[in-house]
């Protein structure tokens, strides 16, 4: 079981000059096993903090985060994280980076090599096994990071704007590949993004968040649209042109915009010490 449950999760950060910043205010969210949930929202809405709490890299001030029924007390290989900045070890080759988690849990070499080879192939990294990260493009580096996450056979995958640092074309290719990978290899996924298109295209459900304080505005089920529209069989650019898709995009945009106009005056006091990113 690997459902992810946020129960009344609140996170406050102490501000450098005293006082506190309420980053997340009493969030309840349940992500079912093998469900792909995208979280969209403006910067400062606490979406990355939410993901970090599921990863065990940050902890709620109040409330609980449970993965598979167990409270999260720290990071673990059953919850793989893909970071926006790729976070590959620059001194390890592609092969060593993908195999790092396997090495940490002392997987026998033959078994590890087979698993690495499989994901090298699946992510289109053949021929780059012995390259160092700096020798690869951003898109290729993020492929390595995704392969590194999948090779651990994690119960949950936590992705923090994984395509945020990529150029537009690479981004589209990676989105299609991620959909292909997610269908073949379903996992419980939290996908953080501020790109509404990306969220609708990838996710089963989209969670829309607002800021000051960070909270959930609405949760929208995308599955009926995808199934009725036959998105699975269509290339990404056609999916994004369908009326159902554009309609959904406007709906989410309006949700985000309405919340911003509700509280126009106060800009988000983002503390300099937020340990996110």
């Amino acid at each position: 079981m690997s459902e992810i449950v946020f129960e009344g999760v609140t996170r406050r950060f102490p501000l450098p000059r005293g006082g506190e910043f309420l980053a997340i205010d009493r969030i309840d969210l349940r992500i079912e096993e093998r469900e792909f949930v995208a979280i969209v929202g403006p910067s400062g809405c606490g979406k990355t903090t939410l993901m970090r709490m599921a990863a065990g890299l940050d902890f709620p001030t109040d409330g609980r985060v449970l993965v598979g029924g167990k409270e999260v007390t720290g990071p673990g290989p059953e919850r793989a994280v893909v970071f926006q900045q790729f976070a590959l070890l620059p001194w390890k080759t592609v092969r060593e980076n993908i195999g790092f988690g396997l090495m940490c849990k002392r997987t026998p070499k033959a078994e590890a090599d087979a698993a690495i080879a499989r994901y090298v192939e699946l992510m289109g990294l053949s021929g780059h096994e012995d390259s160092f990260p700096h020798q690869l493009s951003g898109g290729m580096q993020q492929r390595v990071a995704i392969a590194r996450a999948y090779v651990m056979q994690p119960a949950a995958l936590l992705m923090d704007e994984p395509f945020g640092a990529l150029d537009a074309q690479t981004r589209i290719v990676m989105q299609e590949e991620l959909v292909r990978l997610a269908r073949r290899n379903p996992r419980t996924v939290i996908f953080i993004t501020h790109a509404v298109d990306e969220a609708i295209y990838l996710a089963d459900r989209v969670v829309v968040m607002g800021r000051n304080p960070g909270r959930i505005i609405e949760t929208i089920d995308i599955r009926p649209l995808r199934e009725d529209g036959g998105w699975e069989a269509m290339p990404i650019e056609e999916v994004m042109d369908t009326p159902a898709f554009t309609h959904m995009r406007s709906r989410i945009w309006k949700l985000l915009k309405a919340r911003e106009q509700e509280r126009p005056a106060a800009p988000a006091p983002i503390p300099a010490t937020v340990p996110a990113k």
Binding site: A55, G76, F83, A87, F100, C104, P275
Partner: peptide, 18 residues
């Protein structure tokens, strides 16, 4: 050392020694 690298290693199950 980039803290993200340390976080990434930890999420892959690395011990403190690793």
């Amino acid at each position: 050392v980039d803290p993200v690298l340390i976080a990434a290693a930890r999420t892959q199950g690395a011990s403190t020694a690793q």
